[in-house]
């Protein structure tokens, strides 16, 4: 509740949160479409959802098996 009292203008932070959400959603879509990943899929869901930017990046870099 402290955050409310200090009067953080959410209009400034909202774009950041929005970007993060977009990144996570793209990660989840890619994960859903992927046939196989390195490591179990449910683990990547947790990592993408909980580990904000770094989680999604880790998925794109490590988790994706490039279809070739």
């Amino acid at each position: 509740m402290d955050a409310m009292n200090t009067g953080i203008p959410w209009s400034l932070i909202a774009p950041l949160i929005g970007l993060q959400l977009i990144l996570a959603v793209i990660g989840l879509i890619s994960l859903y479409k992927a046939e196989a990943t390195r490591g179990p899929k449910w683990l990547w869901v947790i990592i993408i959802v909980c580990g904000n930017i770094l989680g999604s990046v880790a998925y794109f870099v490590i988790g994706r098996k490039d279809a070739s």
Binding site: T6, I13, L19, Q20, I22, L23, R64
Partner: peptide, 28 residues
Amino acid sequence: RSYKWLWVPLVFLMLGVMQPVMTRFMPE
């Protein structure tokens, strides 16, 4: 196809925006 055109620009954008916002709210 490997989503690079989506996630790399997005991450760069977030990195860029974060610094001014963090600096602005450092006292809070």
